[in-house]
Each structure stands twice: as structure tokens, then as C-alpha cells.
């Protein structure tokens, strides 16, 4: 886990792919230097973090969530996350970031109100910028 919580928007990456994590982190740092990044390599690590995070500053506004992960996958993370979400007292946007083009996954994401959008990897610089613009407007 790595945090840079001095910026005013904090984003959270949950993905088991180290290379993807690295690339995402670098892109965020390049295009949105003001955004902080925290990383988790599976759903369980992330949910454990949210369960213990009580400092409003350390809770991210944005989550980029992968679906296929070992130990606890994206869907399982969401199931757990909606239970603890009210306790976090913060508007959190969740973007599914997956390489799955399975309609089943896309439909499931679209019908889940907890999910802001479903993005098929890779996330381009333009869509990354748009996401942050939207997020900043809200917050």
C-alpha cells in the first residue's frame, strides 16, 4: 500500500496486475499530478483498508476496480464495500476497469447503482482526464 495523501483528490487502484498498477500510477501522476494514489492488489486488501480507515482525509474519492483478481474479486469487493460504505460518509465514485468484454460483466456493472461506469482497459489519457474533471466538479 502506498499513499500520497497531501493532494485534494485521492484515487484508489485495485488490481492484481503489477504492470497495470505501475502504468496507471504513472499516468495519473503525469496528467493529474495533484491526485494521490493508493494501491491494492486484490479486493480483500482494499476492503480491509476501508474497514479500518476512519480519517476522512485518507479515504479516496475515486476507485478503479478490476474484476478478475485472486482471493477476492471485484464483484465480491463490491458486495462487501456497499455494507461499509455508509460508515465512510463520503461520496466515492467507482469505475470498473477491466479487460473483460463479457456482456455479462458489463450488464452487471451497468445495473449496479454503486458503479459509476464500466471502462474496458486500457484507460486512455483522455478518458482519465474526463474522469478527474467529473470527480472534481462533484467534490
Amino acid at each position: 500500500m502506498h499513499t500520497e495523501n497531501t493532494r485534494h483528490i485521492l484515487s484508489c487502484l485495485i488490481d492484481d496486475d503489477y504492470i497495470h498498477q505501475f502504468g496507471m500510477k504513472r499516468m495519473i501522476q503525469r496528467y493529474q499530478p495533484s491526485v494521490g494514489v493508493i494501491e491494492f492488489y486484490n479486493g480483500l486488501e482494499a476492503i480491509n483498508f476501508f474497514k479500518t480507515a476512519h480519517d476522512e482525509q485518507s479515504i479516496p474519492e475515486l476507485i478503479f476496480l478490476d474484476i478478475n483478481m485472486p482471493v477476492m474479486n471485484g464483484w465480491e469487493f463490491l458486495d462487501e464495500f456497499v455494507k461499509i460504505r455508509p460508515a465512510l460518509h463520503k461520496k466515492i465514485d467507482i469505475y470498473i476497469l477491466s479487460s473483460s468484454t463479457d456482456n455479462h460483466d458489463i450488464e452487471k456493472a451497468k445495473s449496479n447503482p454503486a458503479i459509476t461506469d464500466y471502462i474496458v482497459k486500457p484507460l486512455t489519457a483522455d478518458s482519465l482526464k474526463n474522469i478527474f474533471v467529473t470527480t472534481e466538479e462533484i467534490h
Binding site: 504492470i19 497495470h20 502504468g23 499516468m27 479487460s99 473483460s100 463479457d102 486500457p122
Partner: peptide, 15 residues
């Protein structure tokens, strides 16, 4: 899914 995850990684790293 498999190929896409590698392709997206490639794209990202190249970027």
C-alpha cells in the same frame, strides 16, 4: 480478456 490485458498494458507502458 487475456490478450486485451496484455495489449492494454503494452499501450500503457509505451505511453
Amino acid at each position: 480478456h487475456n490478450l486485451r490485458s496484455h495489449a492494454s498494458n503494452l499501450q500503457m507502458i509505451l505511453q
